[in-house]
Design a protein around this nucleic acid. Structure first.
Lengths: 158, 158
DNA sequence: AATATAACGTTTCATTTGAAACGATAAAAC
DNA sequence: GTTTTATCGTTTCAAATGAAACGTTATATT
C-alpha cells in the first residue's frame, strides 16, 4: 500500500509556498519603489541591525552565499548607498556601513516593510502572533539538528 | 527617528530562513538517496496526488515556471520514471503519469518524506500542529490578497 | 469555412547562480 | 622568524534559470 502523502498537508511544501508568496509580495514593492533586488534588500536590512559589518557577517546572518553577497554589496556601493572601508586591524575584512543616502533610503524601506508586515499580521490576534513565533522557533531548532553538518545553508535550493 | 525593524522578528525573513532550512534538510536526503533534484521531486510529488496531469497542471500546483517543469519532466521521462502520452482530445496537452518503476520509486520517496516530516513535527503537540496549520492558512489567504494580480508566483525570487 | 486569437509545451538566449580557484592577508605551527 | 595553514572577498566558469519567441493545436470571431 502506497504511503498517503497529502501535499497540501505536507509541511515542507506548504512552508515553501507560503514563504514564496510572502517574499514575492514584499519584493514586488521594494523592487518597484526603491529599485532593490532581494539580495540587495537583505544586505541592506542586515546592516540596519548593526553597523559596521563585514561581508562574512552578512553571509552568516542572511544564509546567502558569499558570491551573492559580494555582488549585492558591490552594486550597493556603486549606487552610493554603502560605504566600504578596510578594517584597520585586519585588511582582509571589509567594514560596510550605510552612506548618508543609504541611511535615508533604509529608513524609508524599513518603515514600509514594517507597515506591510503589520497589514499581513493584522489577520492574527496577539495570542496567535505569539503562537506563531513559538511554533516557528521550535521547528527551526528541530530542523537545525536534522541538517547534516556538511551542508551549508547557502547551498542551492531550487 | 529610524523605524526599528528587528530582522529576527520580521516574518518574511524568518519564514524564508525556516523554509530554506526545511527544504535543504529534506532535499539533501532525496538527492543523495534517490538522485532527484528539487524540481524533479516536486513534479513527482504532484503526480503522487493525482494522475494523469498535464505539464500545465503541474505548473499551477507547484508554483514552478513552465520551462522548469518542462525540463524536470523530460529528465524524469528519460530516466524511465514517467510515461508521457498525448491527450486524446487535445493534442496540446500531455498526459503524464508514473511508469511502473516511477510508481515504485514514488512509494519509497513518499514513505521517507512522511517519516522525516514526522520527526520534524514530533517537537509539536497535536494542539500545536493544529495551530500551525490554522496560522499558516490565515497568513496564506491574507498574503494572496496582497499579491498584485500582474505578478506570477513562479517569478524569480532570489 | 476562413481567419484571428488563445493555450500548451519546447527552445532560445541573456542573466543569475554558486562551487571552486584565486590572490591577499592573518594566524598557527614549528 | 620562517613556513604552513586558514580566512576573507573576488573572480571564473559551467550549470541553472526564466522571459520571450516559437511551432503546434485548439477555440473564438467573422
Amino acid at each position: 500500500m502506497p504511503p498517503d502523502l497529502q501535499l497540501n498537508r505536507f509541511l515542507p511544501y506548504r512552508l515553501n509556498i507560503l514563504s514564496k508568496k510572502v517574499s514575492l509580495a514584499l519584493a514586488t514593492r521594494y523592487q518597484e519603489r526603491f529599485g532593490l533586488s532581494i539580495p540587495e534588500w537583505r544586505v541592506f536590512a542586515t546592516l540596519g541591525q548593526e553597523q559596521p559589518l563585514s561581508s562574512n557577517d552578512i553571509v552568516e546572518r542572511t544564509a546567502m552565499d558569499k558570491a551573492k553577497v559580494s555582488r549585492a554589496v558591490n552594486r550597493l556601493v556603486a549606487a552610493g548607498l554603502l560605504d566600504r572601508q578596510a578594517h584597520p586591524r585586519d585588511q582582509r575584512l571589509l567594514r560596510l556601513s550605510f552612506s548618508p543616502r543609504g541611511r535615508d533610503l533604509y529608513a524609508q524601506v524599513a518603515r514600509e516593510a514594517l507597515a506591510w508586515e503589520g497589514q499581513l499580521l493584522s489577520v492574527l490576534t496577539d495570542t496567535e502572533r505569539a503562537q506563531l513565533w513559538a511554533l516557528m522557533e521550535k521547528l527551526e531548532r528541530r530542523v537545525a539538528e536534522e541538517i547534516p553538518a556538511s551542508v551549508s545553508l547557502s547551498d542551492s535550493l531550487d
